[in-house]
Simulated scan of single mutants.
Amino acid sequence: MTTPIMSVTDIGKHFGGLVALKGITADFREGQITAIIGPNGAGKSTFFNILSGALKPSTGTLKFRGTDMAGVAQHDYVHRGIARSYQITNIFPNLSVLENVRVAAQAFRSRFNIWTDRGTLHDVEERAQRTLVSVGLSAKSDTLAKFLAHGQQRALEIAISLVAEPALLLLDEPTAGMGPEETREMVTLIEKLAAERTILLVEHKMKMILGLSDRVLVLHHGQLLADGTPKEIQANAEVRRVYLGQNDGYA
């Protein structure tokens, strides 16, 4: 088998006397959509923050394409090929859609020196426009971000993550606050994006997860309860007991 794009070995995290994660080991293969699920308080957010570099593990190792990420600062993850969107929409509401993405493209291109003369960054505009096409927002390029519908704002945030052309995209509850129609549109977008990159996501909408994902990790009390295909997870009696029976809706 090929080397996984990301692997974690015996990952643990504690905050003082609170053990948030304990002994999680998993490999993430290229080209897959992997969902991380679990009841409230299961450790999903902590685990996701470790995967994205926002937190360092207390124990264990995280490798990306075979390289140990222990000494890598969070802001350098994007330059290694890892990008993340957040549960709470993180955009500039008073900038246009294009300007939001162009600022991100310029920051990435110039190693976070956003004051570099735009005229010297000839590929920035093209990259921003290309990214908007990829998320279906090219027709909204001149619209102020604050006037977009909620689902479009989430797509814009994903576009901001995509300007780095990541090999691994982490999505934190990408359908949070969406109704059924916007959720379906986001699922279509995620499927499109997955054709060119590996995707990890945290989500609560079980029907969506089971229909979208190639693989599902289930956390419970900070430990890995199950790891398998959607069918295997659905058939797992312990998973059904602690989680699936509580949350089986699309929206």
Rank of each mutant, 00 (worst) to 15 (best):
T175K: 01
T183N: 09
K231D: 15
Y250A: 02
D27G: 01
L18S: 03
G16P: 02
I190P: 06
T183I: 15
N236A: 13
P93N: 13
K56I: 01
L121Q: 14
Q153G: 10
V202P: 02
G151W: 00
L193S: 08
L171T: 09
R240P: 00
A155P: 00
F28E: 12
T229H: 06
R29A: 13
K192D: 15
K146A: 11
Q152H: 10
T89W: 00
Y250C: 04
S85P: 11
F64A: 08
L98W: 05
A149D: 14
M208K: 03
E30T: 12
M1F: 08
W115Y: 07
S141Y: 07
A105W: 05
A167W: 01
S213T: 14
F28D: 12
L244V: 14
L171I: 10
A70H: 12
A226Y: 05
P39I: 05
D68F: 11
E165T: 09
R241Y: 11
L148G: 03
T89G: 03
D214W: 01
T198M: 10
V135P: 01
M208S: 06
H221S: 13
V163L: 12
H221T: 12
A167K: 14
T143F: 10
L144K: 07
T120H: 05
T59N: 08
R118V: 04
